[in-house]
Amino acid sequence: DMWVKAVEKAGTTDSEAVQRALIGVEVPNLTGGKAKMLANHMISKPVLIGEIHTDDQFDVVAQTPEVNGEAWSGLLSESKNLIADWTPPLNCGAYDKVAKKCTTGAR
């Protein structure tokens, strides 16, 4: 599990140390690939498209390779200038690339 690997990497259960250690940790995902914690605190994972049946079950009809998760959408005006990067020097969950400052979530 990702948390266990991050604790082992950090050498402690201190929450801030574990959060820093999470970046780069990879674990098997449920689709047979790997989930990796990215610097934006999102994970990589495949996208699955399914066909739903009347019995509430589904068949996967298409699947991508692992896709990197994004913390902010470039399609929305309120977040188009934001990125999340929890590594130095930013250490920020909502860094405004235009204003060049962390708007929230700084540590």
Rank of each mutant, 00 (worst) to 15 (best):
N81F: 10
P65N: 06
M37N: 00
K34L: 09
Q63R: 03
G33I: 02
I49W: 09
G69V: 14
A84P: 00
K97H: 08
C102V: 05
A62K: 05
S44L: 07
V98A: 02
I49K: 02
I52C: 02
L90P: 01
S44T: 15
D85F: 13
G50D: 11
D96C: 06
A62G: 11
L82T: 00
G93W: 11
I23A: 00
Q57D: 01
A71L: 09
N29V: 09
K101W: 08
D14T: 13
K97P: 01
A62S: 12
N91F: 15
W3E: 08
Q19T: 13
A94N: 09
V47W: 13
V61H: 11
R107Y: 15
T103F: 14
P65A: 06
N91M: 11
T64R: 02
K45G: 08
I52V: 13
V4F: 06
D85A: 05
V18W: 12
G93E: 02
A39H: 09
W86F: 14
S15W: 13
I52G: 02
R107T: 12
Y95N: 00
K80G: 02
T13V: 15
T87V: 10
H53A: 06
E16F: 15
A17H: 06
G11D: 03
T54C: 10
K100R: 09
E70S: 11
I49L: 07
A10E: 07
S15Q: 13
R107F: 15
T64S: 11
A106V: 13
L75T: 12
E78I: 12
K97C: 03
G11L: 08
V47N: 04
K9E: 02
A10Y: 13
W86R: 00
V67Q: 14
S73E: 02
K36Y: 12
K5M: 12
E78V: 11
L38R: 13
D14L: 10
H53Q: 04
H41E: 05
T31C: 06
R20T: 09
K5S: 07
P46A: 01
I83H: 07
E51R: 11
I23T: 05
M42F: 08
F58V: 05
P46I: 09
R107A: 11
N40L: 00
V98W: 08
I49R: 03
T87D: 00
L76W: 13
I52K: 03
